[in-house]
């Protein structure tokens, strides 16, 4: 099963590679990883999307906690959370498909951020389901390139 982990770490050089090499050394996979400084500049927040059964997730969480520079690990998937990803999609645009691309982009509240004779680049944010649905619809129209930030996430409510 897919899990989204929120990992609070010391904002120090080398921490990202400690986390990444833990995943590779133990054979855990990373589907996406986002990291940036928090309000407290001495800390960074990582959002890691990974897969595993219960036993593997327990190991991943414990192994992360064991790293000296890791302060807190939360498996968001066990609770209610919001997640967002920003995606740039460059479409092969022709006279005939241009309107359809714009229509789909509109439905998903996408924004055109670059246009040329042969391309249209759309920016869109959303949760996993929305992004997947949009890409699915755009695929037959000719996607040239996709760049994704990876998921960031947060628990809902006051938790």
């Amino acid at each position: 099963m897919k899990h989204t982990l929120s990992v609070l770490v010391e904002n120090e050089f080398g921490v990202l590679s400690r986390v990444a090499s833990l995943f590779s050394a133990r054979g855990f996979n990373i589907e996406s990883l986002c990291v940036a400084e928090t309000l407290d500049p001495s800390l960074s927040l990582m959002t890691i999307v990974t897969r595993g059964d219960e036993m593997i997730m327990e190991q991943i969480t414990k192994q992360l906690n064991k790293l000296i520079n890791v302060i807190k690990v939360t498996d968001l998937s066990a609770r209610k959370f919001v997640d967002r990803e920003l995606v740039l999609i460059k479409m092969k645009a022709t006279k005939t498909n241009r309107a359809e691309i714009l229509r789909i982009s509109d439905i998903f509240r996408g924004k055109v951020v670059d246009v040329s004779h042969k391309t249209l680049t759309i920016e869109v944010t959303g949760d996993e389901g929305k992004i997947a649905a949009m890409i699915e619809l755009l695929k037959p129209l000719g996607i040239k390139e996709v760049a994704r930030t990876g998921k960031i996430a947060m628990l809902r409510g006051a938790q």
């Binding site: 036993m55 327990e58 190991q59 414990k62 192994q63 906690n65 064991k66």
Partner: peptide, 11 residues
């Protein structure tokens, strides 16, 4: 003492 040793190979 090491939580990662627990339930690693054996439940």
């Amino acid at each position: 003492i090491d939580p990662t040793s627990i339930s690693k190979n054996i439940q």
